[in-house]
Nucleic acid binder design. Structure first.
Lengths: 142, 142
DNA sequence: CTTGACCCTGTAGTTGCTACAGGGTGCATA
DNA sequence: TATGCACCCTGTAGCAACTACAGGGTCAAG
């Protein structure tokens, strides 16, 4: 299997596959005479594992640990459970944070009837009004 | 006001303030003889506007547009409303995506009773099982 | 006069990719 | 045989929005 076929089989960008190899998430595959990467089923399933983990929002470092456990079936698996449950907590915190944003945003939008920016409620709400019961929480990434 | 005081007054990292200046979000302030940045109330309120917008998850580019409107009170403010409602939609989409993750993660965690990684349900769930009714959605950022 | 807190510039690191530039390979077709 | 064209290679730079130095200058207190 060449990289393009692995890419199609796992729905992963070719550049991403090379990136995962570079950072040590995937092993260096064999090469053809022409220097092309040559993959087999074990590479495919490892990459599928990585993809599924990324889809669930695990970081590269967490995936490294999970892969390590997966490579050593004799180890205790409580670490995997710990990683996953910590991650679940983070996802829940993020949902709570975004729900707060959503509530504040929906209070803001739809209040302008095409007037001038000078008395726009949207602009106004973003200006400095510490009295409006809004708890400062620091920048957020979507 | 020196940068450290502005930093304290707006709960913003000093480096972040200089960064905002560099990318043109804040104006270049006056300087003291020693070359120290010297801020006044107008800088403080502009930075507060930026911070509040970032807290609500607006991107730097969106904030640029919002600041621009705020600087021109004679403009039509429907653009501000558009920016905010588009952003609200994005936040709602993100919440939906994360809720999906949360559901799948909670199905996965807590199923391991300290056994060996070889038959760990967590590891197992991350391996390749396209039959489990999981819709592929691509990597997510928290 | 020295200590420590603050300030300056400029550059590099973070995360997880993505996008070239500039080249080589392999196969089908004119 | 030439010549496209799709694919592969390496290496580097870019994205967002900061954050973290390194290596220096300034200022007030003790």
């Amino acid at each position: 299997m060449k990289i393009g076929q692995l890419s199609a089989a796992t729905d992963t960008n070719v550049e991403t596959i090379r990136y995962y190899e570079r950072i040590g998430l995937l092993p260096h595959p064999a090469r053809t005479d022409a220097g092309y990467r040559s993959y087999d089923e074990s590479h495919r399933s490892r990459l599928a594992f990585v993809r599924h983990s990324r889809d669930l929002g695990f970081t590269i470092d967490e995936i490294r640990s999970l892969l390590d456990l997966s490579d050593h079936p004799d180890r205790d698996c409580s670490e995997a459970d710990l990683i996953a449950s910590r991650h679940l907590e983070q996802v829940e915190r993020k949902i709570a944070q975004l729900s707060g944003l959503r509530d504040e945003l929906s209070r803001i939008v739809g209040r302008c009837r095409g007037g001038l920016a000078g008395d726009c409620r949207v602009i106004d709400a973003l200006a400095d009004h510490s009295h409006c019961g809004h708890a400062h929480q620091g920048p957020v990434t979507l």
